[in-house]
Amino acid sequence: MRNMYLKRNWHLYILLVFPLAYFFLFKYGPMYGVQIAFKDFNFFQGISGSKWIGFEAFREVFQNQDFFDALRNTILLNFLDLLISFPAPLLLAIMLYELKAAWFKKMAQTVLYIPHFISWVIIGGIVLQVFGTQSGFINNLLEAMGLGQIPFLTDKKYWLFTYLAVGVWQSAGWGTILYLAALTGINKELFEAAEVDGANRFKRIWHISIPGLKTTIATLLIISLGNMISIGFDRPFIIGNVAVRDYSDVLSTFVYRIGMESGQITLATAVGLFQALVGLIFLLGANYASKKLADESII
């Protein structure tokens, strides 16, 4: 029976070769370089020829105050993103789903999705043109109205607001796709029955839509918590600057500085391995808590 199934669906297994090759080449293959964290890496000697130094690189990293500052900023920015950016696509998806005008719904979805496909380099230019102190549209408008300028990109508190707002604008629309897909899978008869029983729109959302999204919410929340210790490089590097480095310097930019600018490949690899291990602990911990509290998990 199994041989018949394989012969009948052999083309599906051939298609599976390509994603498997991708993971082996770009996910598992680079794991060979993890040993750099335990070696005094030398470009001329290569990975295999470099001298073993054990955990010396980790001790040096943990004695570096800049590392702990970057770790603090990473956790802080990810936590604030979780509070602000995580609910945004959920709210957008519910509002879009409740819209009756199909043409407006399609137009709104397109407008909301577009920022996801824009490069962070371009977004950085947009942010400078909108929020810049000298040439920013908002500050020019405030100055024309006789009001004082707001240092969106040079003051730490205002920069934090700008960072979070740009993150919501860039990611929220794309995140609604998953929630909209889950909403369309909810039985329409539940909404019709609730409406017949006199439930208003808010009650239908609270008692049908949100419970129907419980699995999707739990899965995305677990993934977000698993990424609490890691953070993308583009967004803090492009939007950040020297004036707000106390907030904008995160682990990814710290690794870039010590690895690419200073040439300390061993220390950069040690920090990357630390991120991966702590991220795994966060992921497993969030999955365990979700399974115990909400009976939902990804493992």
Rank of each mutant, 00 (worst) to 15 (best):
residue 218 A to L: 05
residue 219 T to A: 15
residue 219 T to G: 04
residue 220 L to P: 05
residue 221 L to S: 14
residue 222 I to W: 12
residue 222 I to S: 01
residue 222 I to C: 09
residue 222 I to E: 01
residue 223 I to P: 01
residue 223 I to E: 02
residue 223 I to G: 00
residue 223 I to L: 14
residue 223 I to Q: 03
residue 225 L to F: 12
residue 225 L to I: 13
residue 225 L to D: 04
residue 225 L to N: 00
residue 225 L to P: 00
residue 226 G to V: 11
residue 226 G to S: 09
residue 226 G to L: 00
residue 226 G to Y: 06
residue 226 G to T: 13
residue 227 N to V: 00
residue 227 N to Q: 13
residue 227 N to P: 00
residue 228 M to H: 01
residue 229 I to W: 13
residue 230 S to L: 02
residue 231 I to D: 05
residue 231 I to T: 04
residue 232 G to A: 07
residue 233 F to L: 13
residue 233 F to D: 00
residue 234 D to C: 00
residue 234 D to I: 01
residue 234 D to P: 00
residue 235 R to L: 06
residue 235 R to F: 05
residue 235 R to N: 05
residue 236 P to Y: 03
residue 236 P to S: 03
residue 236 P to V: 07
residue 236 P to N: 02
residue 237 F to N: 04
residue 238 I to N: 04
residue 239 I to R: 08
residue 239 I to C: 07
residue 239 I to D: 02
residue 241 N to M: 09
residue 242 V to L: 08
residue 242 V to A: 09
residue 243 A to D: 08
residue 243 A to H: 12
residue 243 A to W: 03
residue 244 V to Q: 09
residue 244 V to H: 12
residue 244 V to D: 15
residue 245 R to T: 13
residue 245 R to F: 10
residue 245 R to Y: 09
residue 246 D to G: 01
residue 246 D to N: 13
residue 247 Y to L: 14
residue 248 S to K: 06
residue 249 D to Q: 13
residue 249 D to Y: 13
residue 249 D to H: 12
residue 250 V to E: 07
residue 250 V to I: 08
residue 251 L to C: 08
residue 251 L to D: 05
residue 252 S to A: 07
residue 252 S to M: 05
residue 252 S to T: 03
residue 253 T to K: 04
residue 253 T to C: 01
residue 254 F to C: 05
residue 254 F to Y: 15
residue 254 F to W: 12
residue 255 V to H: 05
residue 255 V to I: 15
residue 256 Y to W: 09
residue 256 Y to K: 02
residue 257 R to H: 07
residue 258 I to G: 09
residue 258 I to D: 07
residue 259 G to Q: 14
residue 259 G to M: 15
residue 260 M to K: 11
residue 260 M to Y: 12
residue 260 M to N: 03
residue 261 E to G: 01
residue 261 E to T: 06
residue 262 S to G: 12
residue 262 S to T: 07
residue 262 S to W: 07
residue 264 Q to T: 07
residue 264 Q to Y: 13
residue 265 I to R: 01
residue 265 I to S: 11
residue 267 L to N: 08
residue 267 L to M: 09
residue 267 L to I: 08
residue 268 A to E: 04
residue 268 A to L: 06
residue 268 A to V: 07
residue 269 T to C: 12
residue 269 T to W: 03
residue 270 A to R: 13
residue 270 A to Y: 12
residue 270 A to K: 12
residue 271 V to C: 06
residue 272 G to W: 06
residue 272 G to E: 03
residue 273 L to F: 15
residue 273 L to Q: 06
residue 274 F to I: 11
residue 274 F to R: 02
residue 274 F to A: 06
residue 277 L to Y: 11
residue 279 G to C: 05
residue 279 G to P: 02
residue 280 L to W: 13
residue 280 L to K: 03
residue 282 F to W: 14
residue 283 L to R: 15
residue 284 L to V: 06
residue 285 G to D: 00
residue 285 G to N: 08
residue 285 G to T: 14
residue 285 G to I: 10
residue 286 A to N: 13
residue 286 A to V: 15
residue 287 N to E: 12
residue 287 N to R: 11
residue 287 N to V: 04
residue 287 N to K: 01
residue 287 N to P: 08
residue 288 Y to P: 11
residue 289 A to R: 09
residue 289 A to Y: 15
residue 289 A to D: 13
